[in-house]
């Protein structure tokens, strides 16, 4: 009797469980799982809405890794990611160290506002604003440079400066995110240890490198991984500031993917570009899993 009752309860619970999970899992299957599988299949095929579907094996990947243009764009993306990640995290850390102090509430509100507002406003919006800042003839930055007697800089129109300009804006936009995370990490460093080090006459640099840095290194590591995943997908800031130009000087993988798919109608090839991006991100995620385990045991 009691057993009966329990198994009924169990059945009811299972039924409720499946019902509650159903809506989200169905949506997930349709909008994530199935598309990922289809993308992988497409990447081994030539697909055209009018000509149909043909298997081409590894041809799309071979094309990607033998086409100089694709390799330039691959290199651009890695270069952007490397520099944007380095500066975002480094500037975020410096700001966090400077801000990690007791201060009156209004000042704290102001700092949070100033450094975090760019983080939450769409890149598509602020990039339009920055495109006016960077404009050669009418730009705010060049106006101030010329009033100082300095030459105007072709921020977006020269391949020498374009990538740097995009990275500057990216750091302005995202560094506040890392600053906030690193402030939280700094506040986790035990006070007594820091005080003891100061009593012993350790210099601020020594305290930082021997105590603070090891304490926050797992968080710092997380920031680097996280920033890399975001930076590898960079899209709208470049689309709006330079459109990928001049030439291909600032074109990223995401832009290339969209161009190939929706202007060139090379869907199979575009799919191989997305799989390459996915693999890059996967590698970074695995590095994170392995690395964070190692850091935690230290």
């Amino acid at each position: 009797m009691a057993r009966h009752y329990r198994s009924d309860l169990y059945k009811a619970q299972a039924r409720a469980g499946y019902l509650f999970v159903l809506p989200s899992f169905l949506l997930y299957a349709v909008f994530v799982l199935a598309p990922v599988v289809v993308t992988i299949i497409l990447s081994f095929a030539y697909y055209d809405i009018s000509f149909g579907f043909f298997w081409v094996g590894l041809e799309n990947y071979q094309r990607f890794f033998s086409e100089p243009r694709a390799l330039t764009i691959f290199g651009n993306t890695l270069r952007f990611a490397f520099l944007a990640v380095t500066f975002n995290v480094a500037v975020g850390l410096i700001l966090a160290l400077a801000l990690n102090r007791a201060m009156p509430a209004p000042l704290l509100y102001f700092f949070r506002l100033a450094f975090f507002l760019p983080v939450i406003i769409a890149a598509a919006f602020v990039s339009v604003v920055w495109s006016y800042f960077y404009s050669f003839d009418f730009g705010v930055i060049n106006y101030y440079l010329s009033t100082l007697g300095l030459p105007r800089i072709p921020w977006l129109s020269s391949s020498q400066f374009a990538m740097t300009s995009i990275i500057i804006m990216d750091v302005w936009k995202n560094t506040g995110f890392f600053m906030i995370i690193l402030i939280a990490a700094l506040q986790g460093v035990p006070r007594p240890i820091l005080d003891a080090a100061r009593m012993d006459g350790a210099s601020p640099w020594r305290t930082f490198s021997r105590i603070t840095l090891p304490y926050i290194s797992p968080v710092l590591f997380f920031c680097v991984v996280f920033a890399s995943i975001g930076a590898l997908q960079v899209f709208e800031s470049i689309v709006i500031l330079t459109g990928g130009g001049p030439g291909d000087a600032t074109r990223s993988l995401s832009i290339y993917l969209v161009d190939e798919a929706f202007s060139g109608f090379e869907l199979g090839y575009a799919a191989s570009v997305s799989v390459i991006m996915m693999v890059l991100i996967l590698i970074i995620t695995i590095i994170q899993l392995v690395g964070s385990r190692r850091l935690v045991t230290h």
Partner: peptide, 15 residues
């Protein structure tokens, strides 16, 4: 798993 896939990997089939 969904946390790992960027929008770039799902967009073509959705399109």
């Amino acid at each position: 798993f969904g946390l790992m896939f960027p929008a770039q990997v799902t967009i073509l089939p959705i399109y």
